[in-house]
Amino acid sequence: MEYVTTALTGLVALYIFMLAAFTGYEIIGRVPAILHTPLMSGSNFIHGIVVVGALWALINATSPLEQAIGFFGVLLGAGNAAGGYVVTERMLEMFKPSNKKKG
């Protein structure tokens, strides 16, 4: 059976947007202030997924103008994703409890 991608139009898209918005709100709502900076950086990494959209746009480009903009988009998107990951990981790596010393 041939699989066909479902078009996410109209209300279905609205449902996705609404549920995703509540998810984001609930996840961040109870976070201690000490993690605000890493979390801002972590959510910054997650919107780096935009690189996937830019890849689609570049692969389907039909003119030099579209190719140029698409190249720029993939470049920036990849920078967002990779940079966001590296700095978040570096920050979170440093959070350690003092059990080791006391025990």
Binding site: A20, G24, I27, S43
Partner: peptide, 9 residues
């Protein structure tokens, strides 16, 4: 991903 970050941000 965009909307989760939009609301969390």
């Amino acid at each position: 991903a965009g909307m989760v970050v939009g609301s969390a941000g």
